[in-house]
Design a binder for these strands. Structure first.
Lengths: 219, 219
DNA sequence: ATCCTCAATCACCAGTATTTTCATCGTTCC
DNA sequence: GGAACGATGAAAATACTGGTGATTGAGGAT
């Protein structure tokens, strides 16, 4: 399951691919519209889970690729350069699943991707980190094939970190996601749960502390 | 266990039914959307294992039938015309299990059907978990060969869990499946029925509680 | 129409399990 | 060396689950 990245600006494309790669996705970068179309028409696209498409492309613009992408049943997230209402509406009307405005936070892109993949039934069912396997369908975690008993909060925290591996989360960010915006209490609570995960999964090095900020799950 | 074939082109419908018949499936051909809807709403649909639905139908199109099909928990494979671009993504998004493009190879259809039937636990007539046997045809459950008297709701719950064993279900998910989306009431109701199943089948360990979430039947 | 029966749901409580807080200790970085 | 930050274990606070029995509601029989 790859992510097709159709973006002509090599700097941005590489940035995206690097980040997605780090987060555990396989990427397939394409730098112009014509080539993208050829791939969509001639190659086997069954293992493409999602396409990130720049609206402004040389050769053939992003909207023109829509037809091919839809034929292959590939959900699309558009990357729009400016906060351009016309493009957004146009894109969504053309059948895009979502759009995101450049420049964007990697975390936001990952969240939106995750949502689209989930919605279209292409969501990851398993996430592997070293010798630990998270089975999202089973709602279970195992290390070296042996089930590990995680408390609900620990599980949620692990899944959140694992879905966006190599991305740094602040304590506030984690609290917002796991407890909700209306949470009142210590941000230090997160530390306790992180501690439990590190202990139970032997993730002392895998979950890295980012001083004064938060945590990051590395792989 | 029949296959519902909703297709207005009689030539194609007959072709499908003939081939499915040859492959050992019983078929129920319907030639328009309105009639299909009536059948889904008024008739007993429990013996329908799968529906093959043409997207372009007179009366009511294939997508409009989705709601009825889902309510009856009938998995769907859409049949789409080759040039019909929007439908494919749309269909899968709406909750179809699969789709197939006309004209198609009969063999491919059979393979896809088999996969869907397998995935959704239909086609099978019995499910065995430890010393418990669920006979879907007889609508009965026995433990060590001795019939166990389950209340209707308990039976439905057991079958749902058993068809997707090792998959975690949230209380909301179970309610959506067994009671329907329009259910209003306590999610704790599920707990009571789970309790009954555990007691009657001695499934205290087999049905595992996932704290704060729901339940999972393990094997 | 009324009663009867049975299944399903609800409400409550006790027992657990989970989460949070807090105090203390260790580490890191100036 | 000191200050700030993070880790850890245990206690306290909170939330969740499982069981029980009462209540409701549907459907069938009289």
């Amino acid at each position: 399951m790859k992510i097709l990245v159709i973006e002509d600006d090599t700097a941005i494309s590489e940035l995206i691919c690097m980040n997605l790669g780090a987060a555990g996705y396989e990427t397939l970068p394409v730098y112009d519209g014509i080539l993208a179309q050829e791939i969509l028409e001639k190659e086997d696209c069954s293992d493409i889970a999602l396409a990130l498409v720049d609206v402004m492309l040389p050769g053939k613009d992003g909207f023109a690729l829509m037809e091919d992408l839809q034929r292959e049943q590939i959900p699309v997230i558009y990357l729009t350069a400016k906060d351009d209402v016309i493009s957004k509406v146009h894109g969504l009307k053309a059948g895009a699943e979502d759009y995101i405005v450049k420049p964007f936070e990697v975390l936001e892109l990952l969240v939106r991707m995750e949502k689209v993949l989930q919605r279209t039934g292409r969501g990851r069912e398993r996430i592997t980190i070293r010798d630990v396997v998270i089975d999202l369908k089973q709602h279970s975690v195992s290390k070296n094939g042996i089930k590990v008993n995680l408390k609900p909060m620990e599980y949620e925290l692990l899944v959140t970190l694992a879905k966006s591996r190599n991305v740094a989360f602040s304590r506030e960010e984690l609290i917002k996601r796991l407890w909700g915006t209306d949470y009142v209490g210590e941000t230090r609570t997160v530390d306790v749960h992180i501690g439990q995960l590190r202990k139970k999964l032997d993730f002392h090095e895998v979950i890295r502390t980012i001083s004064k900020t938060g945590y990051r799950l590395e792989s």
